[in-house]
Design a protein around this nucleic acid. Sequence first.
DNA 1: CTGAAAGCGCTAACAA
DNA 2: TTGTTAGCGCTTTCAG
Lengths: 338, 338
Amino acid sequence: MSKVNIKVLAEQLQLSVSTISKALRDSYEISDETKKKVLELAAQLNYVPNPYASSLRKKKSKTIAVVLPEVADNFFSLAINGIQSIAETKGYHVLIYLSHEKFANERTILEDCQSGRVDGVLISISSETKSAEHIIKLQANNIPVVFFDREQESIETARVTTNDYDCGLMAANHLLKKGCRKPAFVSISQSLPICLNREEGFKAALTEAGIPEANQQIIYCTDNDSMYDQIKTILQNKHRPDGLIASVEKIVTPVYLACHELGIHIPEDIKVIAFATLDTAPILNPPLTTITQPAFEIGKAAATLLFKGIEKSTFDLSKERMVIPSVLIERESTAGGS
Amino acid sequence: MSKVNIKVLAEQLQLSVSTISKALRDSYEISDETKKKVLELAAQLNYVPNPYASSLRKKKSKTIAVVLPEVADNFFSLAINGIQSIAETKGYHVLIYLSHEKFANERTILEDCQSGRVDGVLISISSETKSAEHIIKLQANNIPVVFFDREQESIETARVTTNDYDCGLMAANHLLKKGCRKPAFVSISQSLPICLNREEGFKAALTEAGIPEANQQIIYCTDNDSMYDQIKTILQNKHRPDGLIASVEKIVTPVYLACHELGIHIPEDIKVIAFATLDTAPILNPPLTTITQPAFEIGKAAATLLFKGIEKSTFDLSKERMVIPSVLIERESTAGGS
DNA sequence: CTGAAAGCGCTAACAA
DNA sequence: TTGTTAGCGCTTTCAG
């Protein structure tokens, strides 16, 4: 099966390669008759254009990179869905890269992205990422970058996030309203804006409510493997919190398991609310109150912005900031109180 | 920022482009001294090779495509993880394409894959896919294809699956052992081998146990949107099943919700077991008995096979069949009986 | 050990 | 309306 290319078509039709090329792209320069002949033969010979030849020549790859910490997380998989939905309509291809929450991986990935392999990058940074140079370098190479959800604050470019601070407030106020007096906030990073903002909202709400700082417990579970043990320790503490905010989805299962193991009842002994897009939230034991992020929409919006940045050289990404609010969905895990 | 390429390096060092090219790839033809100079300048100028130029020349893209029905499903996201883990070590890039369970989408995607954009394809077919021509066409273009989980049976190529038939048997026998007399099997496709094989195992177990065919209910929920209503209808039926096997993960939430809505108790009124890799299974209400598929391992194994097929022309994929068994994890949703 | 030159498949001036 | 030609950036003979 020798590969059929433009030259083969040209020979068979006794035309030049440029005529074929133009005909294939429906150029106004080519007669309808010729176009028809070309398209027919192309279909007949199962001609498929070589994208890399075209990319090399046009310096456009029609490909974007999505760089994220992991895929096995409902937020990210829904965001990918949103991104794909836009990429499809635009005819773009999507490369997926996983940082596994490691800065070193993220840097390596972005280095490769400078090669011309992609026309733009959508990124949700790792929980380790503090520096911004690897991203700045990308921009210096004229590769547009758009953040979704997990941004790097010092960088000048578009970002699509949810209203993290307000949600932190909302979550904490919800627990207060339900009668909690010493709620805890479980975070996975001391640098990620999503975590910090949610945490700030949490603290502001408690302070406003007159809860002493000593009762504003914040727990950092930066290591995935020890998360379960860490949570268990907290729940066994004599200052055991009476409410808990899970700043990200993956904290939920260990919390529920630990409570069960220790005979601590949700919501009687401790109320739980989580930032999560889990579709099993309503069937958990007990059903979980969530701050549900618009993951699909965030992906869509970020992709839309990125394509604007790619396709319209006049479009300035640097000041774009889009905030799509999350919603609190109350379920039994925070029942009780007033 | 004018892009630095091999030619720029050559000029600056007063060397030829071919020397640079060889030096960069650490060819034995080049002196250590020259190599060192080249590497230094490359680092200094932040040289990144253009992958498309290289691909065009070498006719290798160092890229694979992963084609699957959806990402927002724990099985698939874990499989992607497994695939990525191998691709990373091999230095390959991963393009993700979603068929959204539509045959037409799948065909379009695979057509593009014939372009040389990818060196190989990993695919889990859509629930609609019956024909195989689109896949055969790929192979005719010398693009190796490996199936993971959802295979197309008539095609001669490698596949990595789990022991679906046995798991169907196992699930049904588990329900029988727990006292079910008229269990139902909920499927999403009448053509997908994973569903058919699980279904066959189910029927074989019941027949073996002397359950009349009339009590071997099989329900096809081919449409996502109406799944909830369909399940509710079944549960309201006077021949309501006393056990239920969910053939795929996404059936779980609607089943639990419908039971709750109708006041049907799991496991007292109906026992539920599901093919799922849900990490929330142990914290559901009640905890869900699962047939847990080795999703990560399936992804890994499929990718490993694909790369063998890509890199070793002597390696024959056509007869490779790998079956990685799932495990039944018993939880409360099937409690009771003997 | 280094260099010259051809060409991967396609596009885009520019001619005709 | 069609054709000629010169590359895109890289690899790879083949010569030197």
